[in-house]
Computed example of a mutant assay.
Amino acid sequence: MTKSELIFNRVNKILEWTIIMIFALLVLDVLFQVFSRYVIGESFTWTEEFARFSLIWITILGAAYLNGKKEHLSMDFLYQKFSPYNKRKVAVLIEVLIFLFALIVMVIGGLNLVYTTLHLGQLSGTLRIPLGYIYAIMPFSGVLIMCYSIYHILSIYSNINRK
């Protein structure tokens, strides 16, 4: 196993456990919300906001995780018709487009969003957390996706050299 594969597997494992922990917190939060509403008779507003933020983080981190594992949704009907040579070219093109999307939309746009919300001092309604911290998951996941794209491109070229 190469050093890049070792790093790739370690990052995937950390990301996987992070998503699992956030999901566990989300489940506990929703269970507490239901318990407090129907047993105690009082609804805590912070539970709904925490659930929303947890769902945002799970979704965006999950997108990066699935991109890294190459398990994201794709329609490959046309791709399967290509020759092996053209499949490699298209695979590299797709990874470059994913990289550019992650860079422009998630990293640059996400950093702009984080900076703006922190600069304006926007806080969440109930938990009073600076929204920039909640939105920070966007550029973080964008960087992960960019790293995964580079890894996938390198693995495509290393597979060519092995043959």
Rank of each mutant, 00 (worst) to 15 (best):
Y38E: 10
Y115H: 12
Y85K: 15
A136H: 02
F53G: 05
L111Y: 07
F23C: 07
A24C: 13
E71A: 07
S124N: 09
F101V: 14
G68Y: 10
I40P: 05
V39F: 15
G121A: 06
L61V: 06
W57S: 07
A51R: 11
L127E: 12
I20A: 12
A64E: 06
I137R: 04
Q80A: 15
F35C: 06
F23W: 06
I56A: 12
K70H: 11
F44M: 08
I22F: 08
I58H: 00
D29T: 15
Y135W: 10
N112E: 10
T126Q: 12
E48G: 09
L113A: 15
L55F: 09
A102I: 05
N86L: 14
L93N: 10
E71G: 13
N67D: 09
G142C: 10
T18F: 07
I60D: 04
K69F: 03
L15W: 09
V96A: 13
G125F: 03
A136W: 05
V39A: 15
Q80V: 09
S54G: 08
V143A: 12
G142F: 00
K89W: 07
K70V: 00
E49M: 10
L127M: 15
R52W: 00
V92H: 08
V143Q: 00
G109A: 08
R128L: 11
Y133F: 15
E48N: 10
E95N: 15
M21L: 15
Y133K: 04
T47K: 08
R37T: 07
M21G: 12
R128H: 11
L66N: 11
M106Q: 06
S141I: 03
F101S: 14
L15I: 06
A51H: 05
Y135V: 01
K89M: 06
L25M: 14
V143P: 01
L31G: 02
Q80Y: 08
I19G: 01
M106C: 05
E95Q: 15
M21E: 01
T126L: 04
F23G: 05
L15T: 14
L123H: 02
I60W: 04
G68I: 02
Q122V: 09
T47R: 14
T116E: 11
V90T: 05
I19D: 01
I108A: 09
I20H: 03
L120M: 13
E16H: 11
I108T: 02
T116Y: 07
